[in-house]
Design a protein around this nucleic acid. Structure first.
Lengths: 205, 205, 205, 205
DNA sequence: TATGAATGAGGTTTCATTCAT
DNA sequence: TATGAATGAAACCTCATTCAT
């Protein structure tokens, strides 16, 4: 929150350089984590990739874990922004379009934040709290969307349904790894269909 | 010449004692991997948990990676056995029952093979070949089931559909972590519904 | 991109402290290798002998092998310097003096670089490339000296003759281990004689 | 000494099998030591190469060191046999032929006992006593040959001269590694010449 | 006797983190 | 502040040797 600063110009040179440094470090970390996973990524390589010294890295992120958390926070904020946009537009879409948008949103997100999955999977090496928070908040957004799209849904079914939709989003992300592209596209079309079916059945209840 | 022993797979047990050891080691490894993930689990702890010395562990599994692979092979075989049973019975079930069985099968499987997910997620630290083999074979089984259950499905849609079903199975496994139990059960019920819907839509095509 | 640091040669020192460390480490390594041979020497002992931590050692020499190679390079350069001095002076010496100088040069060299022999003998544990390079260059120098001293020698005989002289140098080094001193001195006198004889026969051809 | 038994037939089957075992083990050990050096060779691989179990190996050679010593003893005896033959024939040869025979003897010997050099070089991991004994005995033989060939040589010069000849033998062995063959042959011819020169100078004194 | 399992000290190597300049 | 050196616990793995069957 404190780092929301949409006008970096006008800052003192130190601050500006600091900002750039932090950005470079986070980007390097994201790349390393995505490629090797949290455990196998090393602080030394992250610093090198960012063109910084190891000491510099530790000045901004006193711990590997804190570095990962900073990334997770970034990820979480970006995800929230996307979800808010979805919520705002959801009422204007029919079931088919909603399904398509949800899936596309996630697939795109993963391309921009390649380390998100890796950090999410680093259970056991990373405290689960942040990860859980992000997941929960995401469910909240999905609840909102479902409330709009399936107003007849019983209150008690809202959250379980959101959980299922969330799993389908994860599935969309997972399918992005598939080769060849033709198979991947066909599978994603099927997934869209499964999601649309499910959303329709919720709306009809 | 006949006795090349530098096989990369490690010595396989030839006495009863050896077989027991290997079983204990695999079980301990499964526990450690499940709890901490592949990277964070240590060979020392695995050996200790099995009541064996570190040297004993390395006699049978010359590498942490090879140990994981042995577990994966075990997992794969157990999974195949389950899938074959499903295929054999599938024709006797209606859509609802098929969905329920598929989900139950996976949820049960995870309880017996807790390290399966952890090892599957250890991409980057583990060669993906085995993991891919298991996934492919599992898709083959799902294709068989779908061919039985949705005979009208176009041949080209069979595999993509199987991939989607596979992702839903994974979702079922993931949901098993949820707390409290009431929420988990509700979510699994919803997932069953989503799967049944999807299977029905395939069968009607 | 510009800052690839995963060079296989290890970080090279950039501060004064680092240079001193590297020197101390190389010296300690030389002692250990000389006393125990490449295989039996341990990185732990080398670090301790240099008053450094094991981590420090590995920062500059990421591998025992690389450490040995660094020493070999040092040895090679020192040897080259000596050989160049010999070449420069060779024309002013008669056969007797040349023989004496060659032998003395090598005996002295061994005292200053005690690990040279040990590392040269570590074939099988060490890639032979460096060792071969040094040997070849040394032969080149000997060829130059022989060309000066035995100008009538057929071109095709130059290199084989240099190889024999090289072996005689090695013999001189080996004889330095002999006890008691009186026997050693007598043997070295004989070796000088053998070398002088051989050089004379080359010059007369 | 006790194992000199030129009629293995007629022995009890146990003894015979034991003999074969020991021979196979020694041969395997020789190969391993030659290829990897004393330190890098492992008891496990030696046993495997001999088609024996590790326990069997230890029944005959309770220690890696003792195994090496047994080989050294074998080497020493074979060397003695060759030297004795040389001594017996030496008086009938002129200088040229003596030089050629000495060199050929050693070059051949190395081909039959490939581990000899490796074990000789394993200083620091192996007690030097055996190695020294062999070397001394070999010098004794060379002294005998020189006494025959250069009867005028002062008694005090005999042993130093033998030491030099010994070093030239070692040189002959070392040159056997050289490639290509043409260069190797030329170098060995030069070495023969150097040795002949030296022997002649001793004989003339 | 023969075999294969068991042992564990010790070696190499890694890497998060701290420190001094 | 920025940099690179220093640290050492701890990981992986090896292998000579011993033991039980």
């Amino acid at each position: 929150m404190a780092s929301r600063n949409s006008s970096p110009a006008g800052r003192s040179p130190q601050r500006r350089r600091g900002h750039e440094r932090v950005a470079a470090l986070l980007s390097a970390a994201s790349g390393c984590f995505a490629e090797k996973g949290f455990d196998a990524a090393t602080m030394t390589e992250i610093a090198a990739r960012a063109g910084a010294s190891i000491g510099s890295l530790y000045q901004f992120f006193p711990t590997k874990e804190l570095l990962a958390e900073a990334l997770m926070v970034e990820h979480g904020e970006a995800l929230n922004a996307r979800m808010e946009r979805l919520v705002a537009q959801a009422s204007g879409w029919d079931t088919e379009e909603l399904a398509a948008r949800l899936i596309r949103t996630f697939a795109d997100y993963r391309r921009l934040h390649p380390s998100f999955v890796a950090l999410t999977e680093a259970a056991g090496s990373l405290p689960p709290s942040l990860s859980r928070t992000i997941r929960q908040r995401m469910r909240d957004y999905l609840c909102q969307i479902l409330a709009i799209h399936a107003p007849g849904l019983a209150a008690g079914d809202l959250r379980p349904a959101a959980m299922v939709v969330q799993q389908l989003m994860k599935a969309a992300v997972a399918l992005q790894n598939e080769q060849p592209a033709s198979l991947r596209n066909a599978a994603q079309a099927q997934l869209r269909r499964a999601l649309a079916n499910y959303l329709k059945s919720l709306a009809e209840a």
